[in-house]
Structures are given as structure tokens and as C-alpha cells.
Computed example of a mutant assay.
Amino acid sequence: MRSHPALIDEILADAGIRAVLTGVRMPRMTSIMERWVRTLRRELLDRTLIWNEQHLRHALRAYELHHNEHRTHRSLQTAAPLRPLPQPLEPERIASLRIRRHDRLGGVLHEYRHAA
């Protein structure tokens, strides 16, 4: 049984979007997606003026890359999902560290790297 009318499915299908229903007796699935949508809104969509569908798709793709390749995750011990766990630094190297910032999407997202 669907939780929303068939008309919504038709509208989404016309836009190339397929609705995926959550599994039966899988309450964590809904909570994980709600957390993802909340994070996406807070970190990107609430800070960005979206002009059209092409701009939205570009922004979502840039955020996906940022989230999976650069954004640190506490549950992964400050690693990103598609990046290996960073090696610990020796205390004497910390004072001489040079960090470079790279902005994405006009400065909405910031990525930091060690300068060579």
C-alpha cells in the first residue's frame, strides 16, 4: 500500500524520478533518509538560491561529491566515506602545517587540504 497518491508517482515518473518505498519492518531505513535530507537542506539547499532544474542537479552532484569525498564523518573517525582514514600527525609537524581551502558552489561548501 502506498502512502501517497498515484498522481504523485506519475508526476515523479514524468521528471525521471522513481519512488522507492521503504521496506516492511525496516524503521531505520526511513530514519537514515530523513537524516540525509535534513543534512542536505541545512548544509546546501537552505543556503543556495536554485535557478532551475539543471542548477539543482549540478548543486546536488557537487554536494554528493563533497559529502562522500571530503566531508568528515564522526562515525568513520573523521574520514570521508570514499577516502581512507587520515594518518595521525606527529606533534612537531602540526606547527608547520599549511592548509589550503577550496570553495565549491560559490563558497557554500568548503574543502580543506594539506598544501604540498
Rank of each mutant, 00 (worst) to 15 (best):
M1E: 10
M1W: 12
R2L: 15
R2Y: 07
S3L: 06
H4G: 11
H4F: 14
L7I: 02
I8R: 15
D9R: 01
E10L: 08
L12K: 11
A13S: 14
D14L: 05
D14I: 03
D14V: 03
A15T: 02
G16C: 04
G16W: 02
G16A: 06
I17K: 00
R18E: 11
A19N: 12
V20H: 07
V20Q: 03
V20A: 12
T22N: 10
T22D: 05
G23A: 10
V24K: 08
P27K: 11
R28A: 12
R28N: 15
R28G: 07
R28P: 00
I32N: 10
M33K: 07
W36P: 00
V37M: 12
R38K: 15
R38M: 01
T39F: 03
L40T: 14
L40E: 08
R41C: 05
R42Y: 09
E43C: 04
E43P: 04
E43N: 09
E43L: 09
E43F: 02
R47G: 08
L49A: 08
W51A: 15
N52R: 14
Q54N: 13
H55Y: 10
H55P: 01
R57M: 12
H58S: 06
H58F: 02
L60D: 03
L60Y: 00
L60T: 00
A62D: 06
A62E: 08
H66P: 01
H66K: 06
R71W: 07
R71S: 04
H73R: 09
H73Y: 09
R74F: 03
R74M: 00
R74P: 00
S75D: 09
L76P: 01
Q77N: 11
Q77R: 13
T78N: 10
A79Q: 10
L82V: 01
R83F: 02
P84C: 07
L85R: 14
P86F: 04
Q87R: 14
Q87H: 13
L89T: 02
E90L: 08
P91T: 09
P91E: 08
A95V: 13
S96C: 11
L97T: 13
R98T: 13
I99K: 01
I99R: 08
R100M: 08
R100L: 12
D103L: 11
D103A: 14
G106C: 03
G106A: 06
H110V: 10
E111P: 00
E111L: 05
Y112E: 15
R113G: 02
R113D: 08
H114A: 13
H114Y: 13
H114S: 06
A115M: 06
